[in-house]
Amino acid sequence: MQLQSKIDSPRLEIRNLRKRYGHRHVVDDVSLSVRPGNVTCLLGPSGCGKSTTLRMIAGVDMQDSGEIYVDGQLICDTVFRIPPERRQIGLMFQDFALFPHMSVADNVAFGLKNAREEKRDRVEELLAKVNLGWAIDKYPHVLSGGEQQRVALARALAPRPRIMLMDEPFSGLDNRLRDGIRDETLAVLKEEDTAVLLVTHEPEEAMRMADEIALMRDGRIVQQGAPYNIYNAPVDKQAVAFFSDVNVIHSQSNGALTDTPFGQFLTPGWEDGAPVDIVIRPQHFKLDFDRDGRGPLPTESDGVAARGVVMRSRFMGNESLVEFVMDHDGSELKVTVPNVFLPKPGTALWLTVRRDRCFVFPAEN
């Protein structure tokens, strides 16, 4: 039981961190934890406080209030503070910051204080993990961007940090390399049993890498959980829109039901007359190709079919994006269709929607 408790305890824990610059709360009451071998992503738009949170954990910035713990031990509050170099926290940034006048081996060994043979053994071990053993005596300028990123990872891991802080580390790589480098990096970090806190503004990166996502907005964490839960049970309309395009239908609740052109939606708990926004992702519409006003009725889960006219269509690779103007009120809807589907502008089609995949939120003013 004692062993299980130790395994389940967080490696990194921050409690109620706050940071102000002038009258602006850049970080406002942020709390989270990361366990060994797990990746937590701080996800949010630029300027929401992600990087400031990272700098406070690293010890570069000092919080105005709140506490930071590593393996249950306090490392920083507003009175007590362990210096950055003694926190056993590794850092990786978009800028690889390799020393151009040093070999790959010397770059990786830079933060090590071991004897020379021990340093060499650790360097060789890490370069083998990142598939760069052949580059041990090369210099950074002869390596590609992806290879330099892997050297930076090896250097950050060399002192065996208990925690790795990563601030947009892959944004400088082109799309062709990014996925492979991310996967390789994640594998090495998990093998080292390092707790990882990754900052990114890209939802796809967070979904791909994270065991848990903390969605930030205006200095606060507005939702936290596994990627599946964050995506499928968003806390508000902005959370839905951060991960994908959205369509919004404005309506009013009436007797726990809301009328829309696509049928009635269940809105239990809402007062009669309460304005609501029904939020629908483009992939949750269906095109009713058999319907011409006389075809089969949609299933109960698909609600009622509504007619729209194609404005434009574009092929996006794995899917096609079709934009409609709807007959009932002239509103515009975005619909994604698998594979190639490029109807001409002016084509009339009927749409249904998966009501069980929609979200209902209070209407915004």
Rank of each mutant, 00 (worst) to 15 (best):
residue 217 R to L: 12
residue 288 D to G: 05
residue 6 K to C: 06
residue 269 G to T: 04
residue 97 A to M: 14
residue 231 Y to R: 01
residue 280 I to Q: 08
residue 247 N to C: 06
residue 184 E to T: 01
residue 51 S to F: 04
residue 12 L to W: 02
residue 328 H to K: 03
residue 123 V to Y: 03
residue 185 T to Q: 01
residue 182 R to M: 14
residue 182 R to C: 13
residue 220 R to A: 14
residue 248 V to E: 12
residue 29 D to L: 04
residue 100 P to D: 05
residue 97 A to R: 15
residue 138 K to Y: 13
residue 215 L to D: 01
residue 315 F to P: 02
residue 91 L to E: 00
residue 357 R to Q: 15
residue 312 R to S: 13
residue 293 G to L: 03
residue 7 I to D: 06
residue 203 P to L: 11
residue 262 F to N: 02
residue 195 A to W: 05
residue 152 A to P: 10
residue 316 M to K: 10
residue 42 L to A: 07
residue 299 T to H: 10
residue 93 F to C: 04
residue 115 A to K: 10
residue 1 M to P: 14
residue 328 H to F: 15
residue 325 V to F: 01
residue 126 L to N: 13
residue 114 N to Y: 12
residue 58 A to L: 08
residue 66 G to L: 12
residue 259 D to F: 11
residue 229 N to H: 12
residue 272 D to L: 04
residue 18 R to V: 12
residue 24 R to K: 14
residue 26 V to Q: 02
residue 112 L to S: 04
residue 294 R to I: 13
residue 194 T to A: 15
residue 209 M to S: 06
residue 263 G to S: 07
residue 201 H to M: 04
residue 167 D to Q: 07
residue 95 D to R: 14
residue 117 E to V: 14
residue 253 S to M: 06
residue 156 A to L: 06
residue 310 V to A: 06
residue 300 E to I: 08
residue 61 D to Y: 13
residue 71 D to E: 15
residue 308 G to W: 09
residue 330 G to F: 09
residue 8 D to T: 07
residue 292 D to I: 00
residue 195 A to R: 03
residue 50 K to D: 08
residue 233 A to E: 13
residue 131 N to G: 07
residue 312 R to N: 13
residue 361 F to P: 04
residue 28 D to I: 01
residue 252 Q to C: 08
residue 112 L to K: 06
residue 100 P to K: 04
residue 268 P to C: 09
residue 290 D to T: 09
residue 281 R to V: 00
residue 326 M to V: 09
residue 124 E to L: 13
residue 194 T to P: 08
residue 175 N to M: 12
residue 203 P to T: 10
residue 8 D to A: 15
residue 47 G to S: 09
residue 145 G to V: 05
residue 69 Y to C: 04
residue 195 A to I: 08
residue 103 S to C: 11
residue 176 R to H: 14
residue 343 P to F: 06
residue 129 K to W: 11
residue 50 K to P: 08
residue 81 R to I: 09
residue 300 E to C: 01
residue 348 A to G: 12
residue 11 R to Q: 11
residue 267 T to S: 15
residue 23 H to D: 15
residue 79 V to Q: 14
residue 305 A to H: 04
residue 90 G to M: 03
residue 64 D to W: 06
residue 286 K to Y: 12
residue 60 V to D: 03
residue 362 P to N: 13
residue 43 L to P: 10
residue 170 F to D: 02
residue 327 D to R: 08
residue 244 S to Y: 02
residue 33 S to A: 15
residue 135 A to H: 01
residue 80 F to D: 06
residue 228 Y to W: 11
residue 198 L to G: 01
residue 339 N to R: 15
residue 35 R to P: 01
residue 126 L to K: 08
residue 220 R to G: 03
residue 14 I to Q: 01
residue 6 K to Y: 08
residue 256 A to L: 01
residue 288 D to F: 07
